[in-house]
Design a protein around this nucleic acid. Structure first.
Length: 762
DNA sequence: GGTTAGGCTTGG
């Protein structure tokens, strides 16, 4: 862009390329070589952007040479300048009448209006890629303000109010500033956009104002915003980076600005304008005092239409007992404050009236500063009046004494020590959680039961406490989900997230069968389809099997109109292990279930045309063992029945039975997909390889055990209560493995929850 | 070309 909004470069006079030679306006001639020349002057007239014949935009302005001697010596100190195209638009937007500018890359032509306007006989044309305009600002000491002048100033903030709505159309910021001239000047800033107001965090901040109007009010000089005003603000601490706070994308800031800020910082320090007691830690708060608090928001709740509760901490323990204000569970948003409550570190702040607008926009985790907070002693409700009073904090309505609140960016220099303190607490908390497995403090999860009436006693540990924790031994820094998505696999990340949704919703569907050979995953068939396989076998095989390796006994049931046959291996009979594996033919699923209740390994079979023994279709279990059923992989098992090899096996379990029958045993597993969410987005993560650890169950046992199924359901209900809002769900500390899988020649990145257990009592 | 506000506590 040819109108330069300079960022962190040298001052204009030194920054302009050295080959450019300064020419005074009165010395400009038609014959001048303009290629390497620049002119400087004040914008004394600025016209509107108009479109001309070629449908190009143009803007006319008059600039006047700066030097008063030159002005008096020559009538040609003012010159017309015509800006073309985008330059015209840019100039219109970013330069105001009265600004000092430096022009380069112009061409000189004869002025057609010399006779009428009596200005310079030439005019300058600004077009093409070489043309550029640099604005130059001069700053007036606050003691030298003249009424009705429009000026640019720098100052140190000695008093401020956060923007508040006026009776008119705008928000108003009221400040008082001072500078080395020691004048104290009030400023009134009007803008209907909150983001345009100066970002002042504390007394001692440094503010720069452009195009503000000086005027007298009540005998004092004040500054008022005018059309085209702008502002940027800086931290006031010596040695902190000179970084402008602004929401404007185009602002001028150069080396000279940096020096001005640094000089003001030094001066302010020498005047003790930045007092360290400007904000007070909770540990130093005394009853009835008004103070500024810097803290982190843990949770918030809407109390009524005129009051919002903020629960905050600053990592220090208050010397006076802190009141715990109860909120309706469904009104509470954010993290549990159990840990902080137990250490008398949670400040409960009631925010009233005009401050609700700002408070509503706050998110748990944000860093805040509250100005003119009132420490109010109060007898806890329901307690006799002789119990010591507790402190609760009120941010009363109104803006007296700068009363208000705002969020502070987490990279602010004066937030860094607070952040270190909070982080060290978080580490301690995590370490305690690791050690005291059974008596965990509930860090991220607030059971609804604990948000009851205000009580002085510490929250009892309820049996509802459960939350997942990372159990991997490496200590990784926690990252956002957005960060996980940009990391390159394979890698392991730690995140903190909530469960937005999960699949399958019917939890019995999360139990799967997995073939370790071919990696096939399939659903556990339901009883109806298994019963059908049994029915099919009954219909197709009415003759008992005849196997040379087996002893067989049949029972005809006229009532059932079929023959039930039992086979067992001759070798087993000899080994005296014959009751450990029995082949059953001619039974229904129901009968199988009844019989397996009292027998160890029952293998349902049928007979073919040749009366050879066959296993049922492998979509049904090939083995029943008590309540448990075992399945074989349809792809990886021997396709025809093999004579069971029984020698050398003392104890028959599902592994040995499968091996003896040439069946590839399928494993039970739990498979869930979670949609995780944090402030930065959502991410789908699977839970399977470490699912048994997560739920603290065995998948195979879970397949046959209602109690274990209830446990899984219970845990899911804790981390994703049905009908809950996102805000009510607990934050989970999870370990995520990022890995790739190849599918159809395509590489896909996958996320899996690993090394994470749910802890606590159920 | 521009109303608003132009510091100064308190109820819940």
């Amino acid at each position: 862009m040819p109108v330069h909004t300079v960022k962190d470069v040298n001052d204009l006079d030194t920054k302009v390329p050295p080959h450019l030679q300064h020419v005074s306006i009165s010395n400009l001639k038609l014959t001048s070589d303009c290629l390497h020349r620049s002119v400087k002057g004040k914008v004394v007239q600025k016209g509107p952007v108009v479109s001309c014949r070629q449908r190009e935009y143009l803007l006319k302005a008059v600039i006047q040479g700066e030097d008063p001697q030159q002005r008096s010596a020559s009538q040609h100190a003012s010159i017309n300048v015509i800006f073309f195209g985008t330059l015209a638009k840019d100039f219109s937007q970013s330069v105001s009448q009265g600004d000092i500018i430096l022009l380069a890359g112009f061409t000189i032509s004869k002025s057609p209006s010399e006779q009428t306007d009596k200005l310079h006989p030439c005019h300058l044309e600004m077009s093409g890629p070489d043309a550029c305009v640099h604005p130059k600002y001069t700053y007036i000491p606050l003691s030298e303000l003249k009424p009705r002048s429009i000026v640019n100033v720098y100052g140190v903030v000695t008093f401020f109010k956060q923007p508040f709505p006026t009776k008119g159309t705008d928000y108003c910021s009221t400040l008082k500033i001072t500078d080395q001239s020691n004048a104290k000047v009030g400023c009134t800033i009007f803008s209907e956009k909150l983001e345009d107001h100066p970002k002042i965090f504390r007394v001692g901040d440094i503010i720069r104002l452009h195009r503000v109007k000086a005027q007298m009010f009540n005998g004092s000089m004040t500054l008022l915003t005018t059309l085209g005003w702008s502002t940027i603000t800086f931290d006031g601490m010596i040695d902190s980076p000179v970084e402008p706070r602004t929401s404007s994308r185009t602002f001028h800031f150069d080396e000279a600005d940096k020096h001005t800020v640094e000089a003001l910082r030094q001066w302010a320090a020498s005047q003790s304008l930045l007092t360290s007691e400007s904000t007070v830690p909770l540990s130093s708060v005394q009853p009835k005092m008004y103070f500024d608090l810097t803290c982190q928001l843990l949770s918030k709740a809407c109390m009524d239409s005129r009051c919002i509760l903020l629960k905050v901490w600053d990592g220090t323990e208050c010397g006076h007992s802190l009141l715990n204000v109860a909120a309706a569970p469904d009104a509470l948003e954010g993290e549990s404050t159990c840990f902080q409550d137990q250490q008398n570190m949670t400040a409960n702040i009631l925010v009233y009236d005009n401050h609700l607008e700002v408070a509503r926009m706050l998110q748990p985790g944000m860093f805040l500063r509250l100005y003119n907070l009132h420490a109010v002693p109060q007898t806890p409700p329901g307690q006799p009046p002789d119990v010591p009073q507790h402190l609760v904090f009120h941010l009363h309505g109104g803006t007296s004494y700068g009363r208000g609140l705002r969020s502070i960016p987490s990279d602010s220099p004066d937030l860094q020590s607070l952040k270190r303190v909070l982080e060290s607490h978080a580490e301690k908390q995590a370490a305690e959680a690791e050690v005291n497995d059974g008596t965990l403090l509930d860090v991220w999860y607030t059971p609804p039961e604990t948000v009851g009436p205000i009580s002085n006693m510490k929250y009892p540990f309820t049996s509802l406490c459960v939350y997942p924790v990372q159990t991997c031994d490496h200590s990784l820094q926690q990252v956002s989900l957005a960060h996980v998505k940009t990391s390159i696999p394979p890698v392991v990340c730690h995140v903190q997230a909530r469960v937005k949704s999960y699949q399958p919703q019917k939890l019995y569907q999360c139990l799967k069968l997995f073939c370790p050979q071919c990696k096939t995953v399939k659903d556990v068939p339901d009883d109806e389809s298994i019963a059908q396989v049994f029915e099919e076998a009954l219909r197709s095989s009415n003759q008992p099997c005849s196997e040379h390796w087996a002893v067989t006994s049949s029972a005809d049931s006229h009532q059932l109109d079929r023959t039930v046959t039992m086979h067992m291996s001759c070798d087993m009979v000899l080994d005296n292990t014959h009751l450990q594996m029995i082949f059953l033919q001619g039974v229904t699923l129901d009968e199988m279930c009844i019989i397996s209740g009292s027998h160890k390994n029952l293998v349902p079979v049928c007979s073919g045309e040749d009366r050879r023994m066959r296993l049922l279709d492998l979509s049904a279990p090939f083995l029943f063992c008590g309540d448990k059923r075992y399945y074989g992989c349809e792809h990886c098992s021997q396709s025809s029945f093999v004579d069971p090899v029984v020698s050398g096996v003392d104890v028959w379990d599902e592994q040995n039975v499968a091996k003896a029958l040439g069946v590839q045993l399928m494993q039970y597993m739990l498979l869930l997909q979670f949609e995780l969410e944090d402030e930065t987005g959502t991410l789908d993560a699977l839970l399977w390889e470490d699912a048994e650890r997560f739920f603290n169950v065995s998948s195979a046992e879970t397949s046959a055990n209602q109690e274990l199924q209830d446990r899984v359901q219970n845990i899911m209900d804790r981390i994703h209560p049905s009908g809950s809002s996102m805000a009510e769900r607990p934050w989970l500390a999870l370990c995520l493995s990022v890995y790739t899988v190849e599918e159809n020649g395509r590489t896909q990145v996958c996320y899996q929850i690993t090394n994470t257990e749910t802890r606590g009592n159920l």
